[in-house]
């Protein structure tokens, strides 16, 4: 049943068996076409299995992609180093911590350090030290380490 398939999918996710998760998500989708939970699981599992190309083509072949797929798409473009395309995609999205982090990472790669730092300084108070690490990396790269 669909419930059994989702239980199996959930088990694979918990065990970080991402390729298996993709296989079961496909089984769900063959029964329940366009199922958003299965589609979302498939895209995330493909990213976690390092199949960014597969994730992107899954996103793009989905008939009515849910809103958060836009973020996944921008992330995949970033991973493919299609930085301008990724930025364009982000600009059409509602701003969140996730979109801001991704935007700052793209700007870092584009060597636009001042813009990159600007985003870090506008992020909601860092909950994790890693945000500080990236912010400092930007400052160092911009020759503004004293800040």
């Amino acid at each position: 049943s669909l419930e059994d398939l989702f239980a199996s999918l959930n088990r694979h996710i918990e065990r970080s068996e991402f390729e298996e998760a993709v296989r079961v998500a496909d089984q769900v989708l063959s029964i329940s076409r366009g199922d958003e939970d299965a589609l979302r699981c498939k895209v995330v599992a493909l990213v976690k299995a390092d199949d960014v190309d597969g994730a992107l083509s899954t996103i793009r072949s989905s008939k009515s992609p849910p809103a958060d797929f836009r973020f996944f798409e921008a992330y995949c473009l970033y991973r493919q180093n299609k930085l301008d395309e990724a930025l364009q995609s982000l600009k059409s999205q509602e701003r969140s911590s996730a979109t801001m982090l991704l935007e700052s990472q793209i700007l870092f790669r584009l060597n636009k350090m001042d813009a990159c730092i600007d985003i870090y300084q506008n992020l909601p108070k860092p909950k994790i030290e890693s945000v500080e690490v990236n912010s400092v990396a930007g400052l160092v790269a911009a020759g503004r380490a004293s800040e």
Partner: peptide
């Protein structure tokens, strides 16, 4: 070279499947 961590990756999350099982 300064290292930038891929923090955006942490925002690529699985949905909760509790209500589907």
């Amino acid at each position: 070279n300064p290292i930038v961590l891929d923090l955006a990756y942490n925002h690529i999350d699985f949905p909760s499947l509790q209500h589907r099982m």
